[in-house]
């Protein structure tokens, strides 16, 4: 019963390691180092990396940026909540805010083109989640994150909230329309 007794060898740290164990430690270490290398490698060669660009902001400041974009580029309004659908110029800065309990506004983007998407929260923490492709990012009040997105397929995508934000959590939906 030696796992519950003191080691039988006085100098247990000099007892040689068995082959089954030594070989496994070697294999496992190589796999660990490989997995570690994969993350920097994907930063260099992969196409899906979250940017490190983020700024401190205030809800009012961010709200103004969203409003300016909505005023300039709204193409139509939808749903009983009159959500503006914004069609921003290709390559431009696009703003979206999360608040209790709405994503605002909706977007219409072009397939294969890149946009600088700015995200922030007006109140509590929210989870920006694009379905059904399942891209997810955390949105914090007081922080403005910027990511460059390049939609690679046309269609209708729904934004939902996947950070719990109170009883209206499940009302938070908006759209990203991607056109050819």
């Amino acid at each position: 019963m030696s796992t519950i007794l003191p080691p039988s060898d006085v100098i247990w740290w000099k007892v040689p390691v068995d082959r089954s164990e030594g070989l496994w430690v070697g294999i496992a270490l190589l796999w660990c180092l490989f997995m570690f290398a994969m993350m920097p490698i994907w930063h260099i060669y992969g196409n899906q990396n979250l940017s490190n660009e983020a700024y401190r902001t205030h809800p009012e400041v961010f709200q103004d940026k969203v409003n300016a974009m909505v005023d300039a580029h709204t193409v139509r309004k939808e749903t009983q909540w009159n959500v503006p659908v914004v069609k921003p110029p290709v390559g431009s800065d696009v703003y979206m805010l999360g608040k209790k309990w709405q994503w605002y506004p909706a977007l219409e983007l072009k397939k294969g083109e890149s946009y600088r998407l700015h995200l922030s929260s007006m109140d509590w923490q929210h989870g920006f989640s694009v379905q059904p492709i399942n891209i997810n990012a955390q949105i914090l009040p007081g922080y403005e994150s910027v990511m460059t997105i390049t939609p690679n397929q046309a269609g209708e995508f729904t934004i939902i909230c996947n950070e719990y934000c109170g009883v209206g959590h499940h009302f938070m939906t908006s759209k990203i329309y991607v056109t050819e």
């Binding site: 709405q102 059904p132 996947n162 719990y164 959590h169 499940h170 009302f171 939906t173 908006s174």
Partner: peptide, 18 residues
């Protein structure tokens, strides 16, 4: 894509159905 900590995966009452 189903969210954790979420009461309604049918999004009843949301502006956009999903």
């Amino acid at each position: 894509g189903v969210a954790r900590r979420h009461w309604d995966m049918a999004f009843t009452g949301a502006p956009y159905a999903f």
